[in-house]
């Protein structure tokens, strides 16, 4: 009798057990996927193509789109230009303040954007730390597209630096050394060996930076202000348009969402085509 009980317990087929568990995971994942899916679908359903096309022709929308594209591109470019040296040093060198620099680079990612905006104002505003000097040099930053680019760069550059640093660190130093032994100059080693091998990290980092810059709101409205054509980027226009004209807000939301999706698709296809990083 006791034997049968024990036997009975043990005799539950293992395969059915495993399949049951897998289904549980799938069901458990459903709520989150639906939660992500639903708002996006709702947005697309609400914004009909005719209204979209109509609003796209209006000046405020065109100004917001144009400004957003220009400033985000500039911010991404600036992030790459200023961030690549930092990423390389963080990947390759060991120095005393390394942890501090790493934390500093990571900070804008966790800092609330409004805090970032206020901090930028305190530093570069007219009465800020550097503001007076910049005014004297004839470089007014406040209320200008420059301020927008600065705000976007501040919050978005860390994404590039992090990804680029990881990309660089995955390039084996021996490959670089081999190239320089074969006669390549420092620049050639970097451009022809390091960068191609770190490509995944650099591209995905730049894409994240671009997306983050495009979507930046809090720091922009505090530091750069809000003026159509000069500082009113798409997120600002959505936020303020929501209070006046829902159509404008919806159109811009769809455009902005579309850009984000496009970036994601482009990056994924680009990275899938590339051969895996050297050696691995």
């Amino acid at each position: 009798m006791a034997d049968w009980v024990v036997h009975g317990r043990r005799s539950r087929p293992a395969r059915a057990n495993g399949a049951g568990l897998r289904d549980l995971w799938r069901w458990a994942s459903l709520p989150f996927v639906v939660f992500l899916f639903l708002p996006l679908i709702a947005l697309l359903l609400r914004a009909t193509p005719e209204r979209l096309w109509e609003t796209l022709g209006t000046r405020p929308v065109q100004q917001a789109v144009g400004l957003s594209l220009r400033t985000a591109a500039a911010a991404t470019g600036l992030s790459i230009a200023l961030g690549t040296p930092v990423a390389y040093v963080l990947a390759r060198r060991r120095f005393r303040l390394k942890r501090l620099v790493e934390a500093l680079v990571d900070l804008p990612v966790v800092l609330p954007p409004a805090v970032a905006g206020l901090a930028l104002l305190m530093a570069f505003g007219r009465r800020g730390l550097l503001g007076g000097a910049l005014e004297a040099l004839g470089i007014p930053i406040g209320f200008s597209p420059t301020a927008v680019v600065l705000a976007q760069t501040f919050v978005a550059a860390p994404y590039y630096v992090r990804a680029a640093a990881i990309g660089f660190s995955q390039v084996q130093a021996e490959l670089e050394q081999a190239a320089s032994i074969d006669g390549a100059s420092g620049r050639q080693v970097f451009l022809k060996v390091t960068v191609p091998l770190a490509w995944h990290g650099l591209v995905s980092g730049a894409a994240l930076t671009w997306a983050r810059a495009l979507g930046e709101f809090g720091a922009t409205i505090i530091f750069a202000g809000n003026f159509p054509g000069r500082t009113q980027t798409m997120p600002l226009a959505i936020y303020l348009g929501f209070q006046i004209d829902l159509d404008v807000a919806l159109t811009l939301a769809v455009i902005l969402g579309g850009f984000s999706a496009l970036t994601l698709i482009l990056v994924r296809t680009l990275l899938q085509q590339e051969p895996p990083a050297g050696g691995s």
Partner: peptide
């Protein structure tokens, strides 16, 4: 001469007080 259109009147005041 308008440089920014703030979302509420206190933001206008803040920009002036800050000297921006």
């Amino acid at each position: 001469n308008v440089r920014s259109l703030e979302e509420n009147v206190r933001a206008v005041l803040a920009k002036v007080v800050l000297g921006e």
